[in-house]
Structure formats: structure tokens, C-alpha cells
Design a protein around this nucleic acid. Structure first.
Lengths: 233, 233
DNA sequence: CAATCCGTGTAATCGGCGCTTACATTCACA
DNA sequence: TGTGAATGTAAGCGCCGATTACACGGATTG
């Protein structure tokens, strides 16, 4: 928690709205402090993980007094909520973008795309993923934005896998188990990365995305009905 | 971080060693403060998770002044290290105990036992597992005890799965992928539990251990060479 | 047995934190 | 033009981790 010496609060002087003919120095009213605080907190998350976010430091970076943020967020948790919503929004957008290139008529193929897009984003944004995945940093239940975006994504993967099931692409009997196992697999790999376990398993940073794709494929191979073989009774 | 009102520091008066004929009141020297601090911190972890541990609260529960713990631990992180070592020791002991009942000649069966024992402990001790699994709460690299215990466990599972591979029990080609996927699966399920994801996936607290066993079995079914079935070419 | 050293306790203090309160400034609207 | 609401500042509270100076007392040694 102890912070190293900091340059004395750069203060980028950002009069955004309501600055029509105002003088150059930041006016008394910031203009868009809420937004700037969220951005600063997002940056802090990127730099040092969720626990590196402090209200005071965000205020410092925004160039306002330590009490100012509390006009916009009733608590640090509320700020974290906003940060998590921002991260969740980006996460969802990226995954849905990746899905447009996915094969339309092949639910299992779409599931594969989902898993790989999920892992790609988490590998590239580990600390931001950490916020939205752990209950510690804010109150999920009280954050409608995160919950709804998250529920959308979960619903999407559930539906996709259910379609694969209905289409007879799976050998498994219990769809719910497959869904949870699939989720546990990708979530576990993402957390192994975040928590620094992968080096111990012989996966260097350069191979991470490749390995991510490989284990998604391995999982799919484990649940997919063998496609072409002449076997099967 | 704000703490609710506390009874004024119960002070259980524990003169352990060096208390032969001493008076009832705690002597000036505590006797075994290091041990008591670790126990208090373990309890705090159990009550409110790793971030609920504060040096001052541990000191309070041990009945000593706020500065006393720093005679035994140079920092909060060092205390967390000790707590993590304790947790890791218990974790390893439980898993190795579970393994004695495992089938001797069946590596894959032993692997199953490992996975289930792993998940059982994590389901029953989520906050303690959180400490030893996340790099956030202390410095893994500087904690020989945690590292070695952890390396032992990982080595054990790796060897077990490798034996299954050598014995021809697996269909997979790439052993390393299978090992990482297996780890990701159990770790992911454990973290889903810790992070409160399971309710959203329709897994109530009562069904958790059952579901844990189910997905371990599902994973094994996905990698195991079909044993008896009359099908298969 | 007495002197003393050092391990281990206390007391006081520092700066950082989240958060609150009282006050100041400015915007927006009647 | 006046006035209230919105939003900034200043100061302060208690908690935290950590450090320092000092006090106690068990063990070692002459």
C-alpha cells in the first residue's frame, strides 16, 4: 500500500464540457470528473492490479482534491463497480466481435471461437479480467451493468453449447456438466495465467495463446462425437 | 477495511513455554507469539478471506501491542507467507492422506482420487485455498515452504497422469496439454467456487462436491481410452 | 550470586488510506 | 438577476503498516 514518490500530480487540465471560452487553467468545476476518475482507475488496474486502485491516487491523477471523487462515487467499491462495468463492456464487445467470423451452421465451431476469444482477451488483459471475475473488488449483485453483460455472455455460451448438443455434436449425456466443465476449463486457464501458475507448468508467455487454443481443442475433442469415422457400432 | 466494534481484546492468557510456576497473568514475554499470530491470522482468513488479515487485528487477538508482531515478521506479507505455508501444509497432508486409499495399479483411478481430494479440500477451505493459489497475498518465490509443498503436489499429479499415459490409458497425443487442461479444470472449478460463480451456473452449495466429482469424471471420460465397450472399430 | 546482553515486549509516532463534514465556488434555471 | 443545486476544497476522523526509542526479563557468564 505504501506508495513511492510521485511527481506532483501532473494535472492535464482537461476542461471538456462547459469550457467554451473559459481560461486555460482547469476551471473550478472539472467538467467530466466521473469519466476521468474511471479512466484513471482503469489505468491503475492495468498497472498494478485491482488492489492498486486507491481513491486518492485516482483523484491525484485527475488533479482534484482527495474528497472530490466522493461526489461521484459513494465509496471505493462504487468506483470499482464502474471500472468493472467498463472492463466488462470491452470484454463483451471483443467476444461478440470475434463471433461474427465464426461458422454459422456449426455450433461447436462457434463454441470454439467463444472459448478462444475469451482466453485471448483474458491473456491480454489479465488485471482487468481479474476485476470482473472476482467478487472481492466490488459488489456484483449491485452492479447491474456487469451482471447483465456477464449474463449475456454466459447465456450466449450456454445457448451455443446447447445447440451443439441438440444438433448431436456431443457425446456427453449431461449438458449441464459439460457447460460447467467447459467454463471451469477456460476460467481455470485464465486464472492460472493471472495467478502466475503457467511458468511452473512450462508455459512461457510467448506460448500462452497457443496453449489456450490447444486446451480448448482438447476439451472439444473430449466432448465431441467423432465426426467422420466409420466406427461407432 | 473498516472494522466493526470489537470486544476489547479478550487476551486468552496463554503462557505456553517458560511459564512453569509463573503467575496467571501473561508474563511480559509472550512465550510463543509467532505461533499464536499465525493461528490468529489463519482464523482471520477463515472468517473474512485473505484481505481481512491485518497485523494489528492479529496482535489484538494475541493480546499484544500493535508493534509486537514486527518482532517476528518483518511485514504483513511475511505473516501471510507463514499463513500460506500452514495452509499449504494442511492441503498437502489431506491430499496425500486421500491418496492412500486410491487404487494402486490404476494410475487414472489415482488421478481421479487426486482431483476429487483437491476439490474437496478447496470446497471446504475456500479462503485458505485462495491464499496459496493467488500470488497477490504474499511472495511465492520467497516462501520455500509453500513452493516445495506445492511443487510436490504438482509433481505427484504430473507423475500420476504420466503413468496413465505410459500405461496406455489415455487417447490423447500430447501429455503436457492433458496435464495443463486437467489442472485448469480443477483449478477453474475451485476458483469458480471461491469467486462465487457457481450459483449463477445452477450449482447450489449442497451440490458442489457432487458436481466437482462429476466434472472430474467427465474430464477423465474425455481423455481415457474407451475400456470395455464393444464398439470402437 | 551478580552483572550484563539480547530477545522480545510497549509506547509513541509517521504517512497513507477511506470516508465525512463544513465551507467555497460556479452552473443552471426561474 | 437572484438563488439553489451541483460539485469542488480543506480539514479531520479512525484504521492501517511500519519504524523508533525505550522497558522488561530470561539466559549467559565471570
Amino acid at each position: 500500500m505504501r506508495r513511492p514518490a510521485k511527481p506532483p500530480s501532473v494535472r492535464p487540465a482537461k476542461p471538456r464540457r462547459a469550457a467554451a471560452r473559459a481560461p486555460a487553467a482547469r476551471p473550478y468545476h472539472h467538467g467530466d470528473l466521473r469519466r476521468v476518475l474511471i479512466d484513471a482507475a482503469m489505468q491503475l488496474v492495468g498497472e498494478g492490479g485491482p488492489e492498486a486502485v486507491s481513491v486518492r491516487e485516482a483523484a491525484r491523477r485527475a488533479g482534484v482534491s482527495p474528497g472530490a471523487p466522493f461526489r461521484h462515487f459513494p465509496s471505493r467499491d462504487a468506483l470499482m463497480n464502474a471500472v468493472a462495468e467498463e472492463a466488462q463492456r470491452r470484454f463483451r464487445a471483443e467476444i461478440e466481435t470475434a463471433l461474427v467470423d465464426a461458422p454459422a451452421g456449426d455450433p461447436l465451431g462457434r463454441f470454439r471461437c467463444l472459448g478462444i476469444a475469451y482466453l485471448r482477451w483474458t491473456m491480454q488483459n489479465p488485471t482487468h479480467f481479474e476485476i470482473i471475475s472476482s467478487r472481492r473488488f466490488f459488489d456484483h449483485d449491485r452492479s447491474a451493468g456487469v451482471s447483465s453483460d456477464n449474463a449475456e455472455l454466459i447465456g450466449l455460451t450456454e445457448r451455443t453449447l446447447a445447440e451443439a448438443f441438440s444438433a448431436g455434436q456431443l457425446v456427453a449425456r449431461d449438458l449441464k456438466q459439460v457447460q460447467i466443465a467447459g467454463r471451469a476449463l477456460v476460467y481455470g486457464f485464465a486464472r492460472m495465467h493471472i495467478d502466475g501458475h503457467l511458468p511452473r507448468w512450462g508455459v512461457g508467455e510467448a506460448e500462452v495463446e497457443r496453449m489456450a487454443a490447444d486446451i480448448v481443442d482438447l476439451f472439444i475433442a473430449g466432448i465431441a462425437r467423432p465426426a467422420t469415422p466409420a466406427a461407432k457400432v
